[in-house]
Design a protein around this nucleic acid. Structure first.
Lengths: 153, 153
DNA sequence: CTTCAATTAATCGTGCACGATTGAAAGTAG
DNA sequence: CTACTTTCAATCGTGCACGATTAATTGAAG
């Protein structure tokens, strides 16, 4: 039935939309003490993984572009988490480095999140399969949406 | 391991966040022809289900509050999808009714989404289990977050 | 009836997301 | 070297989300 397809897609999309908002609120509890948003936490994670990335590289990691990242990184620079400077070898690019504050905060921030997960009794182990399943859906949607833009070339 | 908990939570949250954005983009393809956003489509679905709901009732259905719905409904009224009027029996409340346009568009809009699902070869049946799993996670997070606010009372 | 509490939509300010465009810089071809 | 193309970050405008507050209306208690 075609209508069943729509109903399933609607329910699935709505659940994912709701869960995303709820997860963001959940993280916000731990992050608000540091004055961080979830998106800003994602940037920190990318830089903890590898410091000195360009805006473009961070965007590749988080699936975000300059229209979102430029103001976001500026706010994080103002807050003292990182520095922004034009790359020496290619002045079009922007290189982002963590400040000492940004580096040293990794432990405390992740501990705050860990406490939030523990204290709230979020049985996260239960969702090991969920992570795989949702990742597959994510991949399917991404290829579906990016293949389309390739068609136009 | 505590760090494993964080890593799983981070991956899960990031996947849900990405999937939500991708799903919104996917729906946007079908909805843009009608000048609708995904959030506005959710409001239409709630009103197709039951017309004449109050802002509060719509908010209960979509987990949104007046700070989001008031401007959203105003834009939809401006676009001709619905009408907003104060309830007769309780002038604090706002009753929302579909216009003829809003009612008649249900078929075409859902057909556009169905075509989008079909044409893009999104094998949605494959995600029957995913819907259940993500719904459980959604419920867990919601009770977790709303029980907390009850503690403060 | 009067006072106080509760409910409701609206308002305000901030921070994403994102489609679209711009301008600068770098790369490429002739 | 010059002209053209590509690749960047930045900018612009719109529409959510959402914490916090406000003002109007209703309900409840005395």
């Amino acid at each position: 039935m075609q209508t069943d397809h729509i109903r399933l897609a609607n329910q699935l999309c709505f659940s994912v939309y709701n869960t995303s908002r709820l997860f963001t609120k959940f993280y916000q509890r731990a992050l608000s003490d540091f004055g961080l948003t979830y998106s800003q936490y994602l940037v920190l994670m990318a830089l903890w993984e590898e410091d000195g990335q360009t805006l473009h590289q961070i965007g590749d990691a988080l699936y975000l572009e300059s229209n979102t990242l430029t103001p976001l990184l500026r706010r994080m620079e103002d807050a003292g988490w990182l520095t922004r400077e034009k790359s020496a070898h290619d002045r079009r690019q922007l290189t982002v480095h963590l400040t000492a504050e940004g580096q040293e905060s990794q432990g405390p921030i992740q501990q705050a999140i860990a406490e939030c997960i523990g204290k709230e009794h979020l049985d996260i182990d239960q969702y090991n399969d969920t992570q795989e399943t949702i990742s597959q859906l994510e991949t399917a949607l991404r290829t579906l949406l990016t293949d389309e833009s390739k068609m136009e070339e």
